[in-house]
Protein backbone atom coordinates (compact mmCIF):
# COMPACT_ATOMS: atom_id res chain seq x y z
CA UNK A 1 0.00 0.00 0.00
CA UNK A 2 1.52 3.31 -0.90
CA UNK A 3 1.39 6.41 1.23
CA UNK A 4 -1.02 8.41 -0.83
CA UNK A 5 -3.76 5.93 -0.07
CA UNK A 6 -3.62 6.41 3.71
CA UNK A 7 -6.29 8.48 5.33
CA UNK A 8 -4.95 11.52 7.15
CA UNK A 9 -6.80 13.57 9.72
CA UNK A 10 -8.02 16.89 8.46
CA UNK A 11 -7.83 19.89 10.75
CA UNK A 12 -11.58 19.58 11.18
CA UNK A 13 -11.50 16.04 12.53
CA UNK A 14 -8.46 16.92 14.64
CA UNK A 15 -10.34 19.73 16.37
CA UNK A 16 -13.31 17.46 16.82
CA UNK A 17 -11.08 14.91 18.48
CA UNK A 18 -9.47 17.44 20.79
CA UNK A 19 -12.83 18.71 21.83
CA UNK A 20 -14.00 15.23 22.54
CA UNK A 21 -10.91 14.59 24.65
CA UNK A 22 -11.61 17.70 26.70
CA UNK A 23 -15.22 16.77 27.19
CA UNK A 24 -14.08 13.40 28.47
CA UNK A 25 -11.69 15.02 30.96
CA UNK A 26 -14.35 17.46 32.06
CA UNK A 27 -16.85 14.70 32.77
CA UNK A 28 -14.23 12.72 34.64
CA UNK A 29 -13.40 15.72 36.82
CA UNK A 30 -17.09 16.30 37.48
CA UNK A 31 -17.48 12.71 38.63
CA UNK A 32 -14.39 12.94 40.80
CA UNK A 33 -15.61 16.21 42.29
CA UNK A 34 -18.56 14.29 43.60
CA UNK A 35 -16.70 11.40 45.13
CA UNK A 36 -13.57 13.16 46.31
CA UNK A 37 -14.99 15.58 48.90
CA UNK A 38 -16.89 12.76 50.52
CA UNK A 39 -13.76 10.66 50.81
CA UNK A 40 -11.96 13.67 52.29
CA UNK A 41 -14.83 14.31 54.71
CA UNK A 42 -14.82 10.72 55.88
CA UNK A 43 -11.07 10.76 56.40
CA UNK A 44 -11.52 13.94 58.44
CA UNK A 45 -14.14 12.24 60.63
CA UNK A 46 -11.87 9.26 61.18
CA UNK A 47 -8.98 11.59 62.00
CA UNK A 48 -11.02 13.46 64.61
CA UNK A 49 -12.29 10.19 66.05
CA UNK A 50 -8.84 8.69 66.52
CA UNK A 51 -8.53 9.56 70.25
CA UNK A 52 -11.49 7.34 71.12
CA UNK A 53 -11.47 4.68 68.44
CA UNK A 54 -10.77 1.30 69.96
CA UNK A 55 -12.61 -1.93 70.52
CA UNK A 56 -13.38 -0.78 74.06
CA UNK A 57 -15.22 2.24 72.70
CA UNK A 58 -17.76 -0.16 71.21
CA UNK A 59 -18.01 -2.57 74.13
CA UNK A 60 -17.89 -0.16 77.08
CA UNK A 61 -20.79 1.71 78.70
CA UNK A 62 -20.74 5.54 78.87
CA UNK A 63 -19.11 6.90 82.01
CA UNK A 64 -18.58 10.21 83.80
CA UNK A 65 -21.82 11.76 82.59
CA UNK A 66 -21.11 10.39 79.15
CA UNK A 67 -17.82 12.23 78.82
CA UNK A 68 -15.84 8.99 78.87
CA UNK A 69 -16.27 5.31 78.23
CA UNK A 70 -17.95 3.82 75.18
CA UNK A 71 -21.23 3.51 73.35
CA UNK A 72 -22.21 -0.12 73.94
CA UNK A 73 -25.84 0.61 74.94
CA UNK A 74 -26.32 2.51 71.69
CA UNK A 75 -24.69 -0.25 69.65
CA UNK A 76 -26.91 -2.80 71.34
CA UNK A 77 -30.00 -0.67 70.73
CA UNK A 78 -29.16 -0.51 67.05
CA UNK A 79 -28.76 -4.30 66.98
CA UNK A 80 -32.23 -4.60 68.58
CA UNK A 81 -33.72 -2.21 66.01
CA UNK A 82 -32.13 -3.99 63.08
CA UNK A 83 -33.05 -7.48 64.28
CA UNK A 84 -36.64 -6.62 65.19
CA UNK A 85 -37.36 -4.61 62.07
CA UNK A 86 -35.78 -7.35 59.97
CA UNK A 87 -38.07 -9.92 61.53
CA UNK A 88 -41.05 -8.02 60.17
CA UNK A 89 -39.75 -6.38 57.01
CA UNK A 90 -37.93 -9.41 55.60
CA UNK A 91 -40.76 -11.97 55.57
CA UNK A 92 -43.50 -9.51 54.64
CA UNK A 93 -41.32 -7.78 52.06
CA UNK A 94 -40.14 -11.02 50.47
CA UNK A 95 -43.67 -12.39 50.30
CA UNK A 96 -44.95 -9.12 48.84
CA UNK A 97 -42.21 -9.39 46.21
CA UNK A 98 -43.21 -12.99 45.51
CA UNK A 99 -46.82 -11.91 45.15
CA UNK A 100 -46.00 -9.10 42.75
CA UNK A 101 -43.70 -11.16 40.58
CA UNK A 102 -45.30 -14.60 40.70
CA UNK A 103 -49.00 -14.21 41.40
CA UNK A 104 -50.16 -10.73 40.46
CA UNK A 105 -51.93 -10.44 37.14
CA UNK A 106 -51.37 -7.43 34.95
CA UNK A 107 -54.35 -5.34 36.01
CA UNK A 108 -55.25 -2.07 37.71
CA UNK A 109 -54.89 -3.55 41.18
CA UNK A 110 -51.32 -4.64 40.54
CA UNK A 111 -50.53 -1.20 39.18
CA UNK A 112 -52.00 0.26 42.37
CA UNK A 113 -49.68 -1.93 44.44
CA UNK A 114 -46.71 -0.87 42.34
CA UNK A 115 -47.58 2.78 42.86
CA UNK A 116 -47.94 2.13 46.58
CA UNK A 117 -44.47 0.57 46.75
CA UNK A 118 -42.97 3.54 44.91
CA UNK A 119 -44.72 6.02 47.18
CA UNK A 120 -43.94 4.08 50.33
CA UNK A 121 -40.28 4.39 49.42
CA UNK A 122 -40.72 8.11 48.85
CA UNK A 123 -42.54 9.05 52.04
CA UNK A 124 -40.23 11.28 54.11
CA UNK A 125 -38.72 9.55 57.12
CA UNK A 126 -40.23 12.09 59.52
CA UNK A 127 -43.70 11.29 58.20
CA UNK A 128 -42.97 7.63 58.86
CA UNK A 129 -42.06 8.75 62.36
CA UNK A 130 -45.42 10.50 62.77
CA UNK A 131 -47.12 7.35 61.51
CA UNK A 132 -45.17 5.23 64.00
CA UNK A 133 -46.14 7.61 66.78
CA UNK A 134 -49.80 7.57 65.83
CA UNK A 135 -50.11 3.90 64.95
CA UNK A 136 -47.68 1.95 67.11
CA UNK A 137 -46.94 4.18 70.10
CA UNK A 138 -50.48 5.47 70.66
CA UNK A 139 -53.06 3.43 68.76
CA UNK A 140 -51.48 0.02 69.37
CA UNK A 141 -50.50 1.13 72.85
CA UNK A 142 -46.90 0.01 72.58
CA UNK A 143 -45.65 3.24 74.09
CA UNK A 144 -42.36 4.87 73.19
CA UNK A 145 -40.37 1.68 72.95
CA UNK A 146 -37.92 -0.42 71.05
CA UNK A 147 -40.73 -2.44 69.52
CA UNK A 148 -42.66 0.63 68.31
CA UNK A 149 -39.51 2.11 66.76
CA UNK A 150 -38.60 -1.20 65.11
CA UNK A 151 -42.06 -1.57 63.58
CA UNK A 152 -41.82 1.99 62.24
CA UNK A 153 -38.46 1.14 60.70
CA UNK A 154 -39.87 -2.08 59.28
CA UNK A 155 -42.62 -0.26 57.41
CA UNK A 156 -40.14 2.31 56.19
CA UNK A 157 -37.54 -0.14 54.90
CA UNK A 158 -39.93 -2.69 53.43
CA UNK A 159 -39.84 -1.23 49.90
CA UNK A 160 -36.11 -2.02 49.76
CA UNK A 161 -36.85 -5.70 50.36
CA UNK A 162 -39.87 -5.76 48.04
CA UNK A 163 -37.99 -4.18 45.15
CA UNK A 164 -34.91 -6.35 45.39
CA UNK A 165 -36.99 -9.50 45.82
CA UNK A 166 -38.88 -8.67 42.66
CA UNK A 167 -35.68 -8.02 40.79
CA UNK A 168 -34.18 -11.29 41.97
CA UNK A 169 -37.30 -13.27 41.06
CA UNK A 170 -37.71 -11.73 37.64
CA UNK A 171 -34.13 -12.70 36.82
CA UNK A 172 -35.23 -16.35 36.89
CA UNK A 173 -36.27 -17.19 33.32
CA UNK A 174 -39.96 -17.79 32.68
CA UNK A 175 -39.16 -21.06 30.90
CA UNK A 176 -38.17 -22.70 34.21
CA UNK A 177 -41.59 -21.98 35.65
CA UNK A 178 -43.36 -23.20 32.52
CA UNK A 179 -41.36 -26.41 32.52
CA UNK A 180 -42.34 -27.01 36.10
CA UNK A 181 -46.01 -26.17 35.58
CA UNK A 182 -46.11 -28.52 32.62
CA UNK A 183 -45.31 -31.37 34.97
CA UNK A 184 -48.31 -30.59 37.14
CA UNK A 185 -46.14 -29.08 39.85
CA UNK A 186 -48.19 -26.46 41.68
CA UNK A 187 -47.44 -22.75 41.65
CA UNK A 188 -46.15 -22.75 45.18
CA UNK A 189 -44.06 -25.91 44.68
CA UNK A 190 -42.58 -24.30 41.60
CA UNK A 191 -41.70 -21.20 43.57
CA UNK A 192 -40.29 -23.28 46.44
CA UNK A 193 -38.42 -25.76 44.30
CA UNK A 194 -37.17 -23.76 41.34
CA UNK A 195 -37.67 -20.02 41.66
CA UNK A 196 -36.66 -19.26 45.25
CA UNK A 197 -33.52 -21.44 45.38
CA UNK A 198 -32.24 -19.57 42.35
CA UNK A 199 -33.03 -16.10 43.60
CA UNK A 200 -32.30 -16.45 47.28
CA UNK A 201 -28.93 -14.72 47.01
CA UNK A 202 -30.48 -11.81 45.15
CA UNK A 203 -33.12 -11.53 47.84
CA UNK A 204 -30.39 -11.59 50.48
CA UNK A 205 -28.67 -8.57 48.94
CA UNK A 206 -31.92 -6.69 49.46
CA UNK A 207 -32.23 -7.88 53.03
CA UNK A 208 -28.68 -6.77 53.76
CA UNK A 209 -29.52 -3.35 52.34
CA UNK A 210 -32.53 -3.23 54.65
CA UNK A 211 -30.19 -3.83 57.58
CA UNK A 212 -28.02 -0.95 56.50
CA UNK A 213 -31.00 1.38 56.09
CA UNK A 214 -32.49 0.41 59.45
CA UNK A 215 -29.20 0.94 61.24
CA UNK A 216 -28.73 4.44 59.88
CA UNK A 217 -32.20 5.96 60.18
CA UNK A 218 -32.71 8.53 62.90
CA UNK A 219 -35.90 10.47 62.30
CA UNK A 220 -38.28 7.50 62.59
CA UNK A 221 -36.89 6.47 65.96
CA UNK A 222 -36.36 9.84 67.60
CA UNK A 223 -40.03 10.33 68.44
CA UNK A 224 -40.97 6.68 68.81
CA UNK A 225 -38.72 5.70 71.66
CA UNK A 226 -35.05 6.55 71.22
CA UNK A 227 -33.37 8.32 74.09
CA UNK A 228 -29.82 9.21 74.99
CA UNK A 229 -30.11 9.58 78.70
CA UNK A 230 -30.18 6.05 80.02
CA UNK A 231 -27.48 5.37 82.57
CA UNK A 232 -25.97 2.02 83.27
CA UNK A 233 -23.93 0.93 86.22
CA UNK A 234 -20.56 -0.63 85.75
CA UNK A 235 -20.65 -4.42 85.51
CA UNK A 236 -24.39 -4.38 84.77
CA UNK A 237 -25.46 -6.37 81.72
CA UNK A 238 -27.01 -3.99 79.24
CA UNK A 239 -30.31 -5.11 77.74
CA UNK A 240 -33.66 -3.61 76.79
CA UNK A 241 -37.16 -4.91 77.29
CA UNK A 242 -39.31 -4.64 74.18
CA UNK A 243 -41.55 -2.06 75.83
CA UNK A 244 -38.69 0.11 77.06
CA UNK A 245 -37.05 3.21 75.68
CA UNK A 246 -33.66 2.52 74.23
CA UNK A 247 -30.45 4.07 72.96
CA UNK A 248 -29.35 3.78 69.33
CA UNK A 249 -26.21 4.74 67.42
CA UNK A 250 -27.89 7.15 65.03
CA UNK A 251 -29.85 8.96 67.71
CA UNK A 252 -26.80 8.95 69.95
CA UNK A 253 -24.88 10.79 67.27
CA UNK A 254 -27.66 13.36 66.87
CA UNK A 255 -27.93 13.87 70.59
CA UNK A 256 -24.20 14.15 71.14
CA UNK A 257 -23.64 16.63 68.38
CA UNK A 258 -26.59 18.92 69.07
CA UNK A 259 -27.80 18.66 72.66
CA UNK A 260 -24.83 17.65 74.68
CA UNK A 261 -21.91 19.55 76.19
CA UNK A 262 -19.21 18.00 78.36
CA UNK A 263 -19.75 18.56 82.09
CA UNK A 264 -17.50 21.14 83.78
CA UNK A 265 -17.04 19.24 87.02
CA UNK A 266 -16.73 15.55 87.62
CA UNK A 267 -17.02 13.51 90.79
CA UNK A 268 -13.71 12.05 91.79
CA UNK A 269 -14.56 8.61 93.07
CA UNK A 270 -11.49 8.42 95.29
CA UNK A 271 -12.03 11.59 97.28
CA UNK A 272 -15.69 12.33 96.68
CA UNK A 273 -14.80 15.82 95.54
CA UNK A 274 -16.05 17.61 92.45
CA UNK A 275 -13.08 18.32 90.26
CA UNK A 276 -12.82 20.22 86.95
CA UNK A 277 -12.22 18.08 83.92
CA UNK A 278 -8.67 17.83 82.71
CA UNK A 279 -7.70 19.02 79.23
CA UNK A 280 -7.18 15.42 78.14
CA UNK A 281 -10.60 14.40 79.42
CA UNK A 282 -12.24 17.29 77.53
CA UNK A 283 -10.47 16.31 74.32
CA UNK A 284 -11.57 12.75 74.80
CA UNK A 285 -15.16 13.83 75.40
CA UNK A 286 -15.15 15.98 72.29
CA UNK A 287 -13.99 13.07 70.19
CA UNK A 288 -16.93 10.87 71.27
CA UNK A 289 -19.43 12.16 68.66
CA UNK A 290 -16.83 11.67 65.95
CA UNK A 291 -16.20 8.16 67.21
CA UNK A 292 -19.94 7.46 67.18
CA UNK A 293 -20.20 8.80 63.63
CA UNK A 294 -17.35 6.58 62.48
CA UNK A 295 -18.82 3.48 64.12
CA UNK A 296 -22.24 4.16 62.57
CA UNK A 297 -20.69 4.85 59.19
CA UNK A 298 -18.60 1.70 59.52
CA UNK A 299 -21.63 -0.46 60.25
CA UNK A 300 -23.64 0.96 57.36
CA UNK A 301 -20.82 0.80 54.83
CA UNK A 302 -19.88 -2.70 55.97
CA UNK A 303 -23.36 -4.00 55.27
CA UNK A 304 -23.56 -2.19 51.95
CA UNK A 305 -20.21 -3.57 50.88
CA UNK A 306 -21.42 -7.01 51.86
CA UNK A 307 -24.46 -6.54 49.68
CA UNK A 308 -22.34 -5.37 46.76
CA UNK A 309 -19.87 -8.23 47.19
CA UNK A 310 -22.78 -10.64 47.23
CA UNK A 311 -24.04 -9.24 43.96
CA UNK A 312 -20.66 -9.67 42.32
CA UNK A 313 -20.44 -13.22 43.55
CA UNK A 314 -23.88 -13.86 42.09
CA UNK A 315 -22.95 -12.47 38.73
CA UNK A 316 -20.04 -14.87 38.44
CA UNK A 317 -21.89 -17.91 39.81
CA UNK A 318 -24.96 -18.21 37.69
CA UNK A 319 -26.53 -21.62 37.39
CA UNK A 320 -27.66 -21.09 33.82
Amino acid sequence: MNNSQKFTATSFTRSKETREKWVRYLMFVVTLLMALPVILLISYLVHKALPVLSLEFITDIPRNQMSAGGIWPAVLGTIYLVALSLMVAAPVGVMAGVYLNEYAKDNWFTRLINLAVINLAGVPSIVHALFGLGAFVLFAGLGESVIAASLTLAVMTMPVVITSTREALSAVPMSFREASWNMGVSRWQTIRGVVLPNSVSGILTGVILEVSRAAGETAPIMITGATASLTFRQGETVYYLLGEKFMALSYHLYYFSTQWTPPRLLLDEGTGEMLPMTQAAIEHAEAIPYGTAVVLLGVVLLFNSLSIAFRYYLRTHRKW
Binding site: S125, A215, G216, S250, L253, Y254, P289, V300, L301, N304
Partner: peptide, 10 residues
Protein backbone atom coordinates in the same frame (compact mmCIF):
# COMPACT_ATOMS: atom_id res chain seq x y z
CA UNK B 1 -25.78 4.58 51.83
CA UNK B 2 -24.30 7.15 54.22
CA UNK B 3 -26.99 7.81 56.85
CA UNK B 4 -28.50 11.26 56.92
CA UNK B 5 -27.54 11.82 60.53
CA UNK B 6 -23.89 11.41 59.54
CA UNK B 7 -24.40 13.96 56.76
CA UNK B 8 -25.99 16.29 59.29
CA UNK B 9 -23.03 15.78 61.57
CA UNK B 10 -20.66 16.63 58.72
Amino acid sequence: AIPSVVWGFI
